[in-house]
């Protein structure tokens, strides 16, 4: 068991070495990165929007009912929603969902390419497949996920506003007062946490896709294994 762990770790390190080699053609890598950024960013926007708006709405409503009848001023709910969304819920939940959605897309794409001999074809042409197929995805994830997390935080706060102010739980002025008790460090933490949370699951997904054995069952197992990791 332990030896297996060393074997996989060694393979992982060698694979990382392959990924960061000099690209054969910068233009092709750039194009692929832009395509991946579009897929990850725009492609994930609907699910991020849906999740964030509900997270924000539920947080605001739940806190209102918990704090009803206490001496805590209502504007604190805006403050709590902002902090919870920015510090924890937006990065964690968004990254978890994206790791599942985007990560299994990547594993399936690479596994499918391995099955259909696309990766073999590229290798015979002389393409460094580890770099060409993985590096653009890593760069695209690193650039797009923090943006998605910021969008999720914003949408979450908007969701809490929509769920609470129009139905009269508290006034718009109270909510905005709470939200505007601003601290810039929280946003940096938010972006930093998202990048950190993002990169490892994705690499696992890509590793499992790129090196999965032939057979649809094996591709599925690879995806399942990587999502468990």
């Amino acid at each position: 068991m332990n030896l297996q762990l060393f074997y996989h770790f060694g393979n992982y390190i060698l694979w990382l070495g392959q990924i960061f080699k000099k690209p054969e053609n910068h233009g092709m890598y750039y194009k692929e990165t832009i395509r991946q950024m579009y897929d990850i960013g725009i492609g994930s926007l609907p699910i991020v929007f849906l999740i964030s708006i509900f997270i924000g709405a539920v947080t605001a409503v739940q806190f209102y009912y918990q704090m009803a009848g206490t001496l805590i001023p209502p504007y604190y709910i805006g403050y709590i929603v902002r902090d919870m969304t920015i510090i924890e819920l937006a990065p964690t939940i968004t990254c978890l969902v994206l790791a599942g959605k985007v990560g299994s897309n990547m594993a399936a794409e690479l596994g499918g390419m391995r099955q259909k001999e696309h990766i073999d074809a590229m290798e015979i042409m002389g393409v460094n497949t580890s770099a060409y197929l993985v590096l653009p995805k890593i760069i695209a994830s690193l650039l797009m996920v923090p943006i998605l997390v910021c969008a999720a935080a914003l949408i979450g706060i908007l969701g809490s506003y929509i769920a609470s102010v129009p139905v009269g739980l508290f006034t718009s002025a109270e909510f905005i007062k709470g939200v505007r008790s601003f601290c810039a460090l929280q946003c940096i933490y938010d972006v930093g946490q998202s990048s950190h949370l993002r990169i490892y699951p994705h690499k696992c997904f890509m590793l499992s896709g790129l090196f999965c054995k032939r057979g649809k069952y094996r591709v599925g197992r690879g995806q399942h294994k990587s999502s468990s990791v």
Partner: peptide
């Protein structure tokens, strides 16, 4: 055949030229 199914025939054939 191992043709890249997300690319057109022209892009498939052009791929090695684009890359190298």
């Amino acid at each position: 055949n191992a043709l890249f199914d997300s690319m057109t025939i022209e892009e498939n054939i052009r791929f090695p030229l684009d890359m190298f």
